[in-house]
Amino acid sequence: MAIDKSWETTSDAAVIEAAGLTDEQYQKKMQRRKEVQDKRISEAIPEKGLIIVNTGNGKGKTTAALGMVLRSLGHGYKVAIIQFIKGAWEPAEKKVFSMWEEQLEFYAMGEGFTWETQNRDRDIQIAQATWQKSLEYICNPDFQLVLLDEINIALKLGYLAVEDIIAGIAQKPVQSHVILTGRGAPKELIACADLVTEMTLIKHPFREQGVKAQAGIEF
Protein backbone atom coordinates (compact mmCIF):
# COMPACT_ATOMS: atom_id res chain seq x y z
CA MET A 1 0.00 0.00 0.00
CA ALA A 2 1.49 3.32 -1.11
CA ILE A 3 1.48 6.03 1.55
CA ASP A 4 1.21 9.66 0.46
CA LYS A 5 3.89 11.64 2.29
CA SER A 6 3.67 14.81 0.21
CA TRP A 7 2.34 16.75 3.20
CA GLU A 8 5.46 15.75 5.14
CA THR A 9 8.02 16.95 2.59
CA THR A 10 6.33 20.22 1.63
CA SER A 11 7.73 22.19 4.56
CA ASP A 12 11.25 20.82 4.05
CA ALA A 13 11.20 21.75 0.37
CA ALA A 14 9.92 25.23 1.22
CA VAL A 15 12.76 25.79 3.67
CA ILE A 16 15.37 24.74 1.11
CA GLU A 17 13.82 26.86 -1.62
CA ALA A 18 13.50 29.87 0.68
CA ALA A 19 17.26 29.96 1.26
CA GLY A 20 18.77 32.84 -0.66
CA LEU A 21 15.49 34.71 -1.25
CA THR A 22 15.20 38.39 -0.57
CA ASP A 23 12.99 39.51 2.31
CA GLU A 24 10.27 40.55 -0.14
CA GLN A 25 10.43 37.26 -2.06
CA TYR A 26 10.36 35.27 1.17
CA GLN A 27 7.34 37.20 2.46
CA LYS A 28 5.41 36.60 -0.77
CA LYS A 29 6.29 32.93 -0.75
CA MET A 30 5.18 32.46 2.84
CA GLN A 31 1.96 34.35 2.13
CA ARG A 32 1.16 31.96 -0.74
CA ARG A 33 1.99 29.04 1.51
CA LYS A 34 -0.30 30.40 4.24
CA GLU A 35 -3.16 30.73 1.74
CA VAL A 36 -2.73 27.12 0.66
CA GLN A 37 -2.60 25.87 4.26
CA ASP A 38 -5.60 28.00 5.30
CA LYS A 39 -7.62 26.57 2.39
CA ARG A 40 -6.70 22.98 3.32
CA ILE A 41 -7.67 23.59 6.94
CA SER A 42 -10.98 25.22 6.01
CA GLU A 43 -11.87 22.17 3.88
CA ALA A 44 -10.79 19.62 6.48
CA ILE A 45 -13.20 17.40 8.43
CA PRO A 46 -13.83 19.03 11.85
CA GLU A 47 -13.73 15.81 13.89
CA LYS A 48 -13.39 12.07 13.39
CA GLY A 49 -12.72 9.24 15.80
CA LEU A 50 -9.34 7.79 14.89
CA ILE A 51 -7.70 4.38 14.92
CA ILE A 52 -4.08 5.10 15.85
CA VAL A 53 -1.16 2.66 15.65
CA ASN A 54 2.24 3.27 17.26
CA THR A 55 4.70 0.59 16.17
CA GLY A 56 8.36 0.02 15.25
CA ASN A 57 11.47 -1.16 17.10
CA GLY A 58 12.32 2.22 18.63
CA LYS A 59 11.35 3.47 22.09
CA GLY A 60 8.46 5.83 22.67
CA LYS A 61 5.38 3.97 21.42
CA THR A 62 3.59 3.85 24.75
CA THR A 63 5.03 7.20 25.81
CA ALA A 64 3.54 8.91 22.75
CA ALA A 65 0.20 7.26 23.42
CA LEU A 66 0.27 8.43 27.05
CA GLY A 67 0.78 11.97 25.78
CA MET A 68 -2.58 11.67 24.01
CA VAL A 69 -4.06 10.22 27.18
CA LEU A 70 -2.85 13.26 29.12
CA ARG A 71 -4.32 15.66 26.56
CA SER A 72 -7.67 13.87 26.67
CA LEU A 73 -7.75 14.01 30.47
CA GLY A 74 -6.93 17.70 30.28
CA HIS A 75 -10.01 18.21 28.11
CA GLY A 76 -12.12 16.42 30.70
CA TYR A 77 -12.65 13.25 28.63
CA LYS A 78 -12.92 9.75 30.04
CA VAL A 79 -10.06 7.41 29.11
CA ALA A 80 -9.35 3.70 29.49
CA ILE A 81 -5.85 2.21 29.46
CA ILE A 82 -5.58 -1.55 29.03
CA GLN A 83 -2.12 -3.12 29.22
CA PHE A 84 -1.36 -6.31 27.32
CA ILE A 85 1.87 -8.24 28.05
CA LYS A 86 3.32 -5.69 30.52
CA GLY A 87 0.74 -6.31 33.21
CA ALA A 88 3.24 -7.71 35.72
CA TRP A 89 4.88 -4.27 35.91
CA GLU A 90 3.73 -1.44 38.14
CA PRO A 91 4.60 1.57 35.97
CA ALA A 92 5.09 5.02 37.45
CA GLU A 93 2.54 6.34 34.97
CA LYS A 94 -0.17 4.38 36.77
CA LYS A 95 0.66 6.20 40.00
CA VAL A 96 0.62 9.62 38.31
CA PHE A 97 -2.62 8.97 36.45
CA SER A 98 -4.33 8.03 39.72
CA MET A 99 -4.84 11.79 40.10
CA TRP A 100 -7.56 11.47 37.44
CA GLU A 101 -9.28 8.44 38.95
CA GLU A 102 -12.74 9.86 38.14
CA GLN A 103 -11.87 10.13 34.43
CA LEU A 104 -9.44 7.26 33.97
CA GLU A 105 -9.76 3.51 34.23
CA PHE A 106 -6.47 1.60 34.17
CA TYR A 107 -6.30 -2.17 33.74
CA ALA A 108 -3.01 -4.06 33.63
CA MET A 109 -4.25 -7.56 33.02
CA GLY A 110 -1.25 -9.34 31.57
CA GLU A 111 1.12 -11.48 33.59
CA GLY A 112 4.41 -10.31 32.16
CA PHE A 113 6.43 -10.99 29.03
CA THR A 114 6.14 -14.43 27.46
CA TRP A 115 9.74 -15.32 28.38
CA GLU A 116 8.84 -14.68 32.02
CA THR A 117 5.62 -16.69 32.16
CA GLN A 118 6.90 -19.55 29.96
CA ASN A 119 3.32 -20.76 29.59
CA ARG A 120 1.87 -20.11 26.13
CA ASP A 121 -1.60 -21.47 26.89
CA ARG A 122 -1.85 -19.23 29.94
CA ASP A 123 -0.59 -16.23 27.93
CA ILE A 124 -3.26 -16.82 25.27
CA GLN A 125 -5.97 -17.16 27.89
CA ILE A 126 -4.99 -13.91 29.60
CA ALA A 127 -4.62 -12.01 26.30
CA GLN A 128 -8.06 -13.08 25.14
CA ALA A 129 -9.64 -12.17 28.49
CA THR A 130 -7.92 -8.78 28.27
CA TRP A 131 -9.29 -8.27 24.76
CA GLN A 132 -12.84 -9.03 25.93
CA LYS A 133 -12.43 -6.42 28.68
CA SER A 134 -11.07 -3.98 26.09
CA LEU A 135 -14.19 -4.39 23.95
CA GLU A 136 -16.33 -3.17 26.84
CA TYR A 137 -14.46 0.14 26.81
CA ILE A 138 -14.18 0.39 23.02
CA CYS A 139 -17.96 0.08 22.63
CA ASN A 140 -18.76 2.40 25.55
CA PRO A 141 -19.58 5.92 24.24
CA ASP A 142 -18.61 7.43 27.60
CA PHE A 143 -14.93 6.82 26.80
CA GLN A 144 -13.38 9.27 24.35
CA LEU A 145 -10.04 7.42 24.19
CA VAL A 146 -9.06 3.78 24.70
CA LEU A 147 -5.38 2.80 24.78
CA LEU A 148 -4.56 -0.85 24.04
CA ASP A 149 -0.96 -0.91 25.19
CA GLU A 150 1.31 -3.61 23.68
CA ILE A 151 -1.60 -5.31 21.92
CA ASN A 152 0.55 -5.52 18.78
CA ILE A 153 2.89 -7.88 20.66
CA ALA A 154 -0.05 -10.13 21.52
CA LEU A 155 -0.97 -10.14 17.83
CA LYS A 156 2.59 -10.84 16.73
CA LEU A 157 2.84 -13.79 19.12
CA GLY A 158 -0.46 -15.24 17.87
CA TYR A 159 -2.31 -14.75 21.15
CA LEU A 160 -5.02 -12.78 19.33
CA ALA A 161 -6.35 -12.88 15.75
CA VAL A 162 -5.95 -9.62 13.82
CA GLU A 163 -9.34 -10.03 12.13
CA ASP A 164 -10.99 -10.13 15.57
CA ILE A 165 -9.22 -6.95 16.64
CA ILE A 166 -10.16 -5.10 13.44
CA ALA A 167 -13.78 -6.21 13.78
CA GLY A 168 -13.78 -5.14 17.42
CA ILE A 169 -12.42 -1.63 16.94
CA ALA A 170 -14.86 -1.14 14.05
CA GLN A 171 -17.60 -1.19 16.71
CA LYS A 172 -16.30 1.95 18.42
CA PRO A 173 -18.51 5.06 18.53
CA VAL A 174 -17.94 7.43 15.62
CA GLN A 175 -16.14 10.13 17.63
CA SER A 176 -14.03 7.97 19.95
CA HIS A 177 -10.34 7.14 19.44
CA VAL A 178 -8.48 3.86 19.89
CA ILE A 179 -4.68 3.64 20.15
CA LEU A 180 -2.86 0.34 19.60
CA THR A 181 0.82 0.16 20.55
CA GLY A 182 3.65 -2.33 20.27
CA ARG A 183 6.24 -3.40 17.72
CA GLY A 184 5.35 -5.61 14.78
CA ALA A 185 1.88 -4.24 14.01
CA PRO A 186 0.36 -6.48 11.30
CA LYS A 187 -0.16 -5.01 7.85
CA GLU A 188 -3.93 -5.56 8.08
CA LEU A 189 -4.10 -3.36 11.17
CA ILE A 190 -1.92 -0.69 9.56
CA ALA A 191 -4.19 -0.70 6.51
CA CYS A 192 -7.34 0.04 8.55
CA ALA A 193 -5.72 2.68 10.81
CA ASP A 194 -6.11 6.43 10.34
CA LEU A 195 -2.77 7.40 11.89
CA VAL A 196 0.32 5.16 11.94
CA THR A 197 3.67 6.10 13.43
CA GLU A 198 6.75 3.88 13.25
CA MET A 199 9.42 4.47 15.89
CA THR A 200 12.85 3.77 14.38
CA LEU A 201 15.64 2.48 16.60
CA ILE A 202 18.99 4.20 16.01
CA LYS A 203 20.83 3.53 19.29
CA HIS A 204 19.77 1.95 22.57
CA PRO A 205 21.72 2.06 25.88
CA PHE A 206 20.99 -1.59 26.67
CA ARG A 207 22.05 -2.86 23.25
CA GLU A 208 25.17 -0.72 22.92
CA GLN A 209 26.22 -0.29 26.56
CA GLY A 210 24.39 -2.94 28.56
CA VAL A 211 22.49 -0.34 30.62
CA LYS A 212 19.44 -1.79 32.39
CA ALA A 213 15.97 -0.23 32.27
CA GLN A 214 15.90 2.84 34.53
CA ALA A 215 13.23 4.57 36.59
CA GLY A 216 11.92 7.64 34.81
CA ILE A 217 13.15 6.44 31.40
CA GLU A 218 11.71 2.98 30.81
CA PHE A 219 9.21 2.75 33.69
Rank of each mutant, 00 (worst) to 15 (best):
A2N: 14
D4V: 05
W7P: 00
W7R: 09
E8N: 08
D12T: 06
A13C: 02
I16P: 00
A19F: 11
L21N: 12
Q25H: 08
Q25K: 15
Y26N: 07
Q27L: 15
Q27T: 14
Q31M: 07
V36N: 08
Q37L: 15
Q37K: 12
S42I: 01
K48A: 15
K48Q: 14
N54T: 03
N54R: 00
N54W: 01
T55S: 14
K59G: 06
T63Q: 05
T63C: 01
A64E: 09
A64I: 01
A65G: 05
V69N: 05
L73Y: 11
L73D: 10
L73F: 10
K78D: 09
A80R: 04
I82W: 06
A88V: 02
A88Q: 10
E90R: 15
A92Y: 11
E102P: 00
L104P: 00
F106T: 08
G110T: 06
T114M: 09
E116R: 14
E116A: 11
E116M: 10
R122Q: 14
D123I: 09
I124L: 11
Q128M: 08
S134E: 02
S134M: 03
Y137R: 00
C139L: 06
N140G: 04
D142K: 13
L147C: 10
L147H: 05
L148K: 02
N152V: 05
N152A: 12
I153K: 00
L157W: 10
Y159V: 02
L160G: 09
A161S: 09
V162T: 15
E163Y: 07
I166W: 10
I179G: 13
A185R: 02
E188W: 02
L189R: 01
I190F: 03
A193F: 03
V196P: 04
K203W: 06
A215G: 01
E218A: 07
